[in-house]
């Protein structure tokens, strides 16, 4: 079991954190609150899952938050005149297209991913704002859609259920398919992957497309919850929260390393902290500060092997002084 904890330290962090919060606030561990956390965390979770793919493949996608916004206004806007299923398809397709475009510019011209996706972040947000005229769109959406946000199946809120399902598919994909393995290879050593006969461009474009798709899907879930679409404030800063979630879960920003389980836990940890701080009435400024500290500790512990090694070194240097 120690091997398991060393490989998945974030699970320990998740459990310990839940127990501590439960101790501090009696309402925290109540079923209603836990389901609330799952609902909220799963929204960011979809985006973080996409980011996890891109990061493992050695890329970076900052356009995710804008894609969430575009998807939300497309669904809400198109549903005014067309059946919602059309709007949903258009939105998901738009997400994939943004991803493919990101991947194309990164691979075909060898542009830096950060530059390409900063550009698309601005462009996509601009398109969403132009489409919605920067005003919230209250579409005439069918009630079934809201079930996506409020429904409960097997005792789990539907968004969480869908998120877990997506995670399961993603994990199986990464572990058991050729393409999944190639993502790790390309992220771990692009040149070696190319010389081993892998179509590097294709693999990278796929990761960005997955990220675009999952972000658009998060947009769909958001519309279902808010019953409206909005372009200006939706998903702002999510790209960084998604990267933070992935990094807390052990995904390396250098590429080639990371797991879906880790990303899932990272998203839950961030969601849990936000929820618990609200329950405890912690000042929002402090929330940001604590999230920052958690991220720093997480990344430090991964980059130095593991936390135990770090503590050992600390003790060692104390002995010497």
């Amino acid at each position: 079991m120690t091997g398991f904890f060393r490989t998945y330290p974030f699970i320990v962090v998740l459990v310990v954190m839940a127990l501590v919060f439960g101790f501090l606030s009696p309402t925290f561990l109540e079923a209603g609150n836990l389901s609330n956390i799952l609902k909220q965390a799963s929204l960011l979770g979809f985006v973080a899952l996409g980011t996890c793919f891109v990061l493992i493949g050695g890329g970076l996608d900052l356009s995710v938050g804008s894609v969430v916004a575009l998807s939300s206004v497309l669904i809400a806007g198109l549903s005014a005149t067309l059946p919602p299923i059309v709007g949903i398809h258009v939105a998901l397709l738009a997400g994939i297209l943004v991803g493919v475009a990101n991947g194309y510019f990164v691979t075909a011209f060898n542009f830096q991913p950060i530059i390409v996706t900063i550009s698309s972040m601005a462009i996509v947000r601009g398109i969403a704002m132009a489409y919605s005229d920067s005003r919230p769109i209250f579409g005439t959406l069918p009630d079934e859609l809201f079930l996506l946000a409020d429904g409960v199946v097997f005792g789990l809120p539907v968004p969480a259920l869908l998120f877990f399902l997506a995670c399961a598919i993603a994990a199986l994909f990464l572990r058991y398919t050729n393409l999944g393995r190639q993502i790790y290879q390309v992220g771990g050593n692009e040149e070696a992957a190319r010389l081993a006969g892998i179509n590097v461009a294709r693999v990278k474009i796929v990761t960005y497309a997955i990220s675009g798709f999952l972000s658009a899907f998060a947009g769909l879930m958001l519309v279902a919850r808010m019953q409206s679409g909005e372009a200006v404030r939706t998903g702002v800063g999510w790209e960084l929260d998604a990267i933070a979630a992935a990094a807390i879960g052990g995904v390396s920003l250098m590429g080639g390393i990371g797991t879906v389980v880790g990303t899932l836990c990272g998203a839950l940890i961030i969601g849990m902290m936000a929820n618990a701080f609200n329950l405890l009435g912690v000042n929002p400024y402090w929330q940001r500060i604590v999230i920052g500290i958690v991220l720093a500790i997480a990344v430090a512990s991964y980059s130095s092997g593991n936390l135990r090694e770090m503590l050992k070194r600390l003790r060692f240097s104390k002995q010497r002084n």
Binding site: Y184, Q185, N189, A192, A196, G256
Partner: peptide, 17 residues
Amino acid sequence: IQGLVLSMSIGQNTTLP
């Protein structure tokens, strides 16, 4: 630089191509 994906396991590198 060109032959191995250092972050991956021995087995996974062996079966790369």
